[in-house]
């Protein structure tokens, strides 16, 4: 980080907290953000609302930012909304303007722990009691789903023009129509989604990427739900189905709640906060939906490599996940080898 930026950031913290002075002790760029940049900051604050050492993350657009789904200001509003209803997210602290850092940004409190899915599902020392963790996931999800439109602070989220399930069917087909290769098995599953689409009684705020790998845990349990860039108005079962889908269990297929615990534990936690039973049959629909959606995303990621825009072994291999997702989709929708 440039010296001028460091000074501006220190000044920003002093203003926001009312500290007499602020010193930026360290600033380290975290890896893995092509669209956003995340800086781990340690700030020493003398006096004010956050006196002492404050460890936090500054999230800004990357220097060469391409258009992202949500702006930093929108992401900050989502975090605030989730935080306000008691979802465990990195506490959103302050929204900053371009004049301070050269790019839009916000600051959130640092969350401790690890998010690596394949470790969380296997390591008994991570996440505490895993059944309790699954139950907690349900409670947290139900809290998020207490947020309903209309919301002035979230008016940037578009309301789906039709039932969320059918909206997805249109979007999946739209993608496949402009893709260079046909995927008959995916088409089969999308046809099934169309024929079996449920009505959505009530739109709620869904995270839409809430799965193992996208939350952090320490030795005791959940520390933060991350990656809010896909959040939007949808069916509450959209999140439940995505979390439970076989493709997000990191090989622990018998643990139907995200590879960490039982489905019963997840539902129990959810229903405790929701106050009503979940429609378990309808969850299956959204698990089929989850596999199709992940397959489409995997194709899009693979295409970034295939097109030559972004050569990457990881992206290239992601394309090769699609066949196994398709096979599971065929099984789920009743197609079997005669």
């Amino acid at each position: 980080m440039e010296a001028q930026q460091q000074q501006a950031i220190a000044q920003f913290f002093a203003e926001k907290t009312g500290a007499d002075s602020a010193q930026l002790v360290s600033a380290n760029l975290l890896s893995g953000g092509a669209i956003q940049e995340n800086w781990l900051l340690s700030v020493e604050l003398n006096g004010g609302s956050h006196a002492g050492q404050l460890d936090c993350v500054l999230r800004s657009d990357a220097a060469s930012a391409v258009s992202a789904s949500h702006s930093r200001a929108q992401e900050f509003a989502l975090l605030q909304a989730a935080f306000a209803v008691g979802v465990t997210v990195p506490e959103p602290l302050w929204l900053g303007s371009k004049t301070v850092f050269g790019r839009a940004f916000f600051v959130m409190r640092k969350a401790a722990g690890t998010a690596a899915g394949y470790r969380i599902v296997k390591d008994v020392g991570l996440g505490g009691d895993k059944e309790k963790l699954a139950e907690r996931m349900g409670e947290e999800m139900a809290r998020l789903h207490s947020i309903k439109p209309p919301r002035a602070d979230l008016d940037f989220l578009k309301l789906p023009a039709q039932a969320p399930a059918l909206q997805s069917v249109s979007e999946f087909r739209h993608f496949l129509d402009q893709h260079h290769t046909a995927f008959p098995a995916l088409e089969w599953a999308i046809r099934w989604l169309e024929k079996n689409a449920p009505a959505t009684a009530e739109l709620v705020l869904c995270h839409r990427d809430w799965r193992t790998g996208n939350y952090m845990v320490d030795a005791h349990g959940l520390t933060a739900v991350l990656d809010w860039e896909f959040a939007g108005w949808s069916d509450r079962l959209d999140d439940i189905g995505w979390f439970c889908a076989r493709c997000w269990r990191f090989g622990q297929f018998d643990k139907e709640a995200g590879g960490i615990g039982s489905r019963a534990a997840l539902y129990r936690g959810y229903e405790r906060v929701y106050g009503k039973p979940l429609d378990a049959d309808a969850v299956f629909y959204w698990e089929v939906h989850a596999h199709v959606r992940w397959a489409i995303i995997a194709l899009q990621q693979g295409e970034r490599h295939v097109s030559g825009r972004e050569p990457s072994l990881e992206l290239a291999l992601t394309a090769h996940i699609v066949p196994e997702l398709e096979l599971e989709l065929l099984r789920m929708t009743g197609v079997q080898h005669a």
Binding site: P184, A185, W188, H320, I321, V322, P323, E324, E326, L327, L330, V335, Q336, H337, A338
Partner: peptide, 20 residues
């Protein structure tokens, strides 16, 4: 449907055989 299943199995056999 049977053809769809077999075509897909063949692709999985190349891309992710352990999933089979």
């Amino acid at each position: 449907q049977d053809l769809l299943w077999r075509i897909t199995v063949q692709r999985v056999r190349e891309s992710a055989p352990r999933a089979l």
